[in-house]
Design a protein around this nucleic acid. Structure first.
Length: 651
RNA sequence: GCUGCUGUAGCUCAGAGGUAGAGCACUCCCUUGGUAAGGGAGAGGUCGAGAGUUCAAUUCUCUCCAGCAGCACCA
């Protein structure tokens, strides 16, 4: 290997050292110091993460990766996946292995095994993994040629590995790894030995089905998920975050706060209770005002629409299986009338557009609808109120000329940004999906549409992330992803250029030249669907809504029954100012009432006893705070009313 | 839709081949209490639906429905 020539290794501090060609990162680390030699996890050779054992043949910048580096965490998770696979095969030798990548917070590995893994199995596997870690087996690697690797896996009866070897592109090395007797195919890199994975900082979380290579036509494998960290504290912190996220679950809070329920007879559809519907209509009223101010006209279109329209729009062909079909068998009719509950609003909006002649003077025409849609979503996709079969979009279609796209897009980005801010989401990201491989239209037309969207983003001062090839087959689009209070990202808003549907449904306008032209249609939604967005709001705020959104705003609770009359007076006063106020004059102690309304996430509790009656004050307590303040009734009423004013109506 | 798990009182959950239990919530009584559960009594369930095995099924088996986790899907 080494031909005796010397190479120069430059370290991060700028120092360079001379070694014979073929030296490994492990050699260099050990040469620098004995302790670094032990602490080394891997190396970065000219910035590329590699195995410690990889021979270095030419001058290079070298960085020794130890436990404290960011890269180390990835290596730990990756090796943890392999150690898990080894543990599984040592426990059940007939299990076939497939792939095991690193994911957020951990890793998974997919196995092929006839028997399902049980939660008890996971504990057994964890124990075995700790044994493997304690063995401190060195990780060894070799690069093999394709034929040898395939022959090896055929001999091992590992059909998935044979397939994987076959998929590795020509020219890429086929890396074979070992620790102990166990072997796996992997592009690496890996740790130096299994003992570098902390034995007390990983946990196997769950097992679930997953299709081989992500394709539902392929067989289903069993995927074991795990999390892994540098140390026990980080693992514990992660588990705590999971517990806290579970406490915000909108399904749990929806029940506890009496917002909504769902039941078997209407899967994927929501029974909104008074509290939840108050939240819903408050949000909808807000959006209605914002859209009116934003230059939209509001319309409403039918729920049950003949299949003819869906055939014209192209949806029947593509989405029939996901539509609720309604057949009506009228007496004496020659044939049944076949309709579908509308799964989207756009074709109906074009019908309104198409009534009467439109002039270029009518454009841009911004047509909004809180459009109630029904889609027959696959049963496995349903999730609380986040993914449902009956939902209402804050939908709008902007009919415009091509030269108006940029301005309309910029206008929408500003609109969305302001709405998100009002609703408590300061941070959002724009995904810019450009022309896909399979597309219609000329390159010039794509150039123009993409340029218009990009210019609009720049004009509004935002950044974007490019999502190449992910546009619709007829035009590019933007997706807007907001970040919630615990860092989760939700795609809500969308802005999609569409020259296609106006064409299919025959939309036209009369231009300055007196001839008919084809308008563009811009599909856009800010919240997406009210149902899903409310789910996001619930989880973002953990049920503790800002006053203007809170379904129950104020409870006025008596401390003694002699204060009951005053309680009702206070409630009446608050209600007269538009506040959602309730009286609690039940024969219960104030402790009990405070506890109950705190659990009910009521933002403000006003307690009144003999003193308050006497002084015409109230004692105010905010949700989550321990201290109280005694305030004059008039003052409290005015300040709460101001606080409860929706953000768009504040002075 | 696929794989696995789950379905018992309004909620959270125990239970067992011989037709059910706890805590909280609910109703009534006592208590008028100053900021996260005052005390007592009472009522409440075709054990998700259907079929099968059995003298007997809520319990075992099968089918279906729904929910949960993940995968696939999301116009």
């Amino acid at each position: 290997m080494a031909d005796g020539s010397q190479i120069s290794i430059t370290l991060p501090d700028g120092a360079s050292r001379s070694y014979p060609a073929g030296v490994t990162g492990a050699d260099v680390a050990a040469d620098i110091s004995k302790s670094l030699g032990k602490a080394a996890f891997a190396v970065k050779i000219d910035g590329t993460l590699s195995d410690l054992s990889k021979p270095i043949e030419a001058d290079a910048a070298l960085e020794i990766v130890t436990a404290k580096d960011d890269a180390a965490l990835e290596l730990i998770r990756h090796d943890c996946a392999h150690i898990m696979a080894r543990a599984v095969q040592e426990l059940w030798p007939d299990v076939k292995v497939t792939i095991g990548p690193v994911i957020d917070n951990g890793f998974y590995y997919d196995f092929d095994r006839a028997e399902p893994f049980t939660p008890e199995d996971l504990e057994v596997i964890e124990k075995k993994m700790r044994d493997i870690i304690n063995l401190r087996d060195a990780v060894r690697t070799e690069v093999w040629d394709r034929e040898r690797a395939i022959a090896h896996y055929e001999a091992m009866d590992e059909p998935f590995k044979v397939e994987l070897v076959g998929m590795i592109p020509e020219g890429e090395p086929i890396r074979m790894y070992w620790h102990g007797e166990w072997q796996d195919l992997c592009r690496g890199p890996h740790l130096a030995h299994t003992g570098q994975v902390p034995a007390d900082a990983f946990k196997l979380m769950s097992v679930a089905g997953a299709y081989w290579r992500g394709n539902s036509d392929n067989p289903m494998l069993q995927r074991i998920y795990g999390v892994a960290f540098r140390n026990k504290q980080d693992l514990k912190a992660h588990l705590t975050i999971l517990e806290e996220a579970a406490l915000r679950d909108h399904r749990k809070l929806g029940r506890e706060m009496h917002l909504f329920h769902m039941q078997e007879e209407a899967p994927g559809q929501i029974f909104w209770h008074p509290n939840g519907w108050t939240l819903y209509t408050t949000l909808q009223d807000y959006m209605r005002r914002r859209q009116r101010d934003g230059g939209y006209v509001e319309v409403n279109t039918p729920q049950v629409v003949n299949r003819r329209l869906w055939e014209e729009s192209g949806h029947w062909e593509n989405y029939q299986e996901h539509m609720f079909i309604v057949e009506v068998d009228e007496e004496h009719a020659r044939e049944k009338s076949v309709n579908a509950l509308k799964p989207m609003n756009c074709p109906c909006h074009v019908q309104i557009y198409n009534q009467g002649l439109k002039s270029y003077r009518d454009l841009p025409l911004r047509m909004a609808e809180f459009g109630a849609c029904n889609r027959y979503e696959p049963s496995g996709a349903l999730h609380g109120i986040m993914r449902v079969r009956g939902f209402t979009q804050d939908d709008a279609h902007i009919f415009c000329r091509e030269d108006q796209i940029e301005a309309e897009c910029a206008r929408f980005i500003e609109f969305l940004s302001s709405v998100y801010k009002d609703l408590g989401f300061e941070k959002f990201e724009i995904m810019f999906a450009t022309r896909p491989e399979k597309r219609v239209g000329t390159e010039e037309s794509w150039d123009r549409m993409e340029a218009a969207l990009e210019a609009a983003i720049r004009k509004t001062g935002h950044e974007y992330t490019l999502d190449p090839g992910e546009g619709a087959f007829y035009a590019p689009k933007l997706d807007f992803k907001l970040t919630d209070a615990i860092g989760r990202v939700w795609q809500c808003g969308t802005f999609q250029v569409d020259p296609n549907l106006p064409e299919r449904l025959g939309a036209t306008y009369v231009g300055e030249d007196g001839a008919k032209h084809r308008p563009f249609m811009l599909h856009r939604a800010t919240l997406g669907s009210f149902e899903r967005f409310i789910g996001i709001l619930i989880e973002n705020y953990a049920g503790k809504f800002p006053l203007w959104l809170a379904p129950r705003q104020v409870v006025v609770a008596s401390i003694v029954s002699d204060a009951d009359d005053y309680v009702h007076e206070v409630v009446a006063k608050l209600r007269a100012l538009g506040l959602r106020a309730e009286a609690d004059t039940r024969n219960e102690k104030i402790n009990y009432k405070v506890r109950e309304h705190s659990l009910g996430k009521v933002p403000v509790i006003l307690a009144v006893g003999a003193r308050e009656v006497e002084e015409r004050t109230v004692t105010l307590r905010r949700l989550g705070e321990k201290q109280t303040q005694v305030l004059p009734l008039d003052e409290v009423a005015a300040s709460l009313a101001a606080e409860a004013t929706p953000p768009d109506q504040r002075g």
